[in-house]
Design a protein around this nucleic acid. Structure first.
Lengths: 215, 215
DNA sequence: GAAATCATGTTAATTAGTTTACAGATACCA
DNA sequence: TGGTATCTGTAAACTAATTAACATGATTTC
């Protein structure tokens, strides 16, 4: 699931404590089950957070946009329970947990920032769970809307497979739905990126009219 | 989802800062969308954490057993995004966020306790998401195993409907699966509580043999 | 610039799970 | 103690989504 919430947190002020790293597209920043010695701030680029489910199928749980934090799980000396992969070349800052905890002691006003960030992640997960009560069509509609909001423009830099992984559906299902939307002019597909032309048509009340089945 | 993890956190040492409350069965401790001024420690009883999904269907996201914390969302001055309902008469301790943050300033060694607790909740949510990759039969199997582990005995104090709400399935589906398991002696149902007789049979490799469909 | 890899387009068959509907059992309350 | 409410048992029909399979088009990569 993609964050339906704004990022107005101020991690930027802490960048001086972090070490900058450059990450190439398709490279993992951290991997599920491995131990990490800190967390990351995304400065530029785009990162997807995936989790390998029981059957080995990946599930895309979160898309991290610049200004956001990832990998906080290691604050707890626990292995990562997700994998972070750059979908665009990225610039990240790494923070050591130990050092962050030290900083926190002298600057306790940072704590709200931490709890806010964690709560946001928690909400994202909970939203992903709630989404399962919707039809696949509604799920993908909300997904696209959230992504659009995140990117401020209406381009969606995800493949059909990734969209499917977001919602826990198959690529075929996603394809069928997108096809209908393409035909009715809600979205446009040109060289492998979607552009949402009519976000209003993806809003809940409008959706019922669209059926995923041929007449 | 029910916690698959142990609780060896030491919130008990902080009880002196909390105010004790008694909660009757079927009563809400806090409600989704309402503002809360603190979080809760469950001392005795049993509490289910539900979230109202988009279609109004409830989803049971977590079962809180004694020794655990609930309602941490309000640390962030945000409304609760879940509802907590006692399923057994409960004794809880309420902590004011403000006061807890003050305590944290003088006792920074409490921070790991907080991050551990939050991480645990996060893991629970993520597990619930991952479960969707499994068949409904496997989901319910894992659910029962987790619940058994949580309660240290093999009795499951949930209705079929609640099990269904845990997994995001319908009661009929749950019923069908339980029926097969009952017939093959894996579980026993007497006056509305399940007892898991053969937890081993619910382990992944064994499960494939059981079909939910009549021969 | 050719080969290999990856992403999309499309169909048909299958199936798992939902919906609906109702009867019987058990608990609760007052 | 009776009545209401809640929970379980069960069947049949339906449908949405999956699986499987293959063809075409677009990028990487060497």
């Amino acid at each position: 699931m993609v964050s339906p919430f704004e990022t107005d947190l101020k991690w930027e002020t802490l960048l001086k404590y972090g070490t900058r790293q450059f990450v190439k597209r398709k490279t993992a920043i951290y991997k599920q089950e491995t131990m990490g010695e800190g967390f990351y701030y995304l400065h530029k680029g785009l990162v997807k957070i995936v989790t390998s489910t029981f059957k080995g199928k990946d599930r895309l749980v979160n898309i991290v946009v610049p200004g956001q934090i990832m990998g906080l799980q290691t604050m707890d000396q626990q292995p990562h329970f997700t994998t972070a992969i750059a979908v665009k070349n990225a610039v990240i800052y790494h923070f050591s947990c130990k050092q962050f905890l030290e900083t926190l002691k002298v600057q306790p006003e940072l704590l709200p920032l931490l709890t806010q960030t964690i709560n946001q992640k928690m909400r994202i997960l909970l939203t992903a769970i709630s989404m399962k009560a919707l039809t696949s069509e509604e799920q993908i509609a909300r997904l696209l809307l959230n992504i659009c909001e995140d990117f401020k423009n209406h381009e969606v830099p995800l493949t059909q497979q990734e969209l499917a992984d977001c919602a826990g559906l198959t690529r075929i299902t996603v394809y069928k739905i997108l096809k209908v939307w393409k035909e009715s002019g809600i979205i446009e597909i040109k060289n492998r990126t979607f552009i949402v032309k009519r976000p209003d048509m993806l809003q809940p009340p409008h959706l019922t009219a669209c059926t995923t089945h041929p007449v």
